[in-house]
Design a protein around this nucleic acid. Structure first.
Lengths: 110, 110
DNA sequence: ATTGCAAGTCTTGCTATACAAGGTTAGGCT
DNA sequence: AGCCTAACCTTGTATAGCAAGACTTGCAAT
């Protein structure tokens, strides 16, 4: 199994909350998010992001807004909702707990 | 999204290497592994484990051995292979790296 | 004007994983 | 013989990330 495939599987279920964490600082538009996530090696392409944003919109985690005022093409800015903030807090708990279990196992295997 | 569904997604791609880490201490049989993983809340049922063990067998990460000597029904013991050890090391690198990125994002969102 | 390019959003088809539920086999105990 | 449990495995489902590319719109150069 290549490093890339390992990373792909690890990203499952994490990406959604990384988006929420990024948005907790203020709204961002699609490609801007993609850039941030790519820099952190949290996505491999935009093909993950846009379907994810659509799901998050449907689930009320983010609220989009078209911005046509600026220069260039219209951008769709996303803001985190109250519900999104709550889910981020829940995720953080689960992440910390599960991460500790995995860390313990990996420690023990060395 | 419930805590359980969050955890389910987080487990994807992690479970395989938790099994390898457990086996790095010595061979174990199926239900024994299931017990260890359940205690750590790393699986929700055996329905994840047996298909995973079959895949790992096919990929040469583990080497099974039937043991009919003891009392009770025959058990299938799994041992980690050389290739499995290498994959575990690779996973550890990816896990640490990706985990640090996620931790940084979650830290920043508080 | 027209052509070309780049930014930006979104879609399609694919693969892989965890899970729930249940089926199967074999030994031990009464 | 009959039941219970340990232990193993199978089937069907839902979902997530990804690669590749389609579509649209503004801008810049020719």
């Amino acid at each position: 199994m290549s490093e890339e495939r390992i990373a792909t599987n690890l990203r499952k279920g994490v990406l959604e909350y990384c988006v929420l964490a990024l948005l907790s600082h203020g709204e961002k538009y699609g490609l801007e998010l993609a850039g941030d996530l790519t820099a952190r090696e949290l996505i491999a392409s935009e093909g993950s992001l846009y379907p994810l944003l659509a799901r998050m919109r449907e689930n009320g985690l983010v609220e989009p807004r078209w911005d046509t005022s600026g220069t260039g093409r219209p951008r769709r800015y996303y803001a985190i909702t109250q519900h999104g903030s709550e889910q981020l807090a829940t995720f953080t708990r689960v992440w910390v707990s599960l991460g500790a279990q995995v860390d313990a196992l990996l420690e023990g295997s060395r």
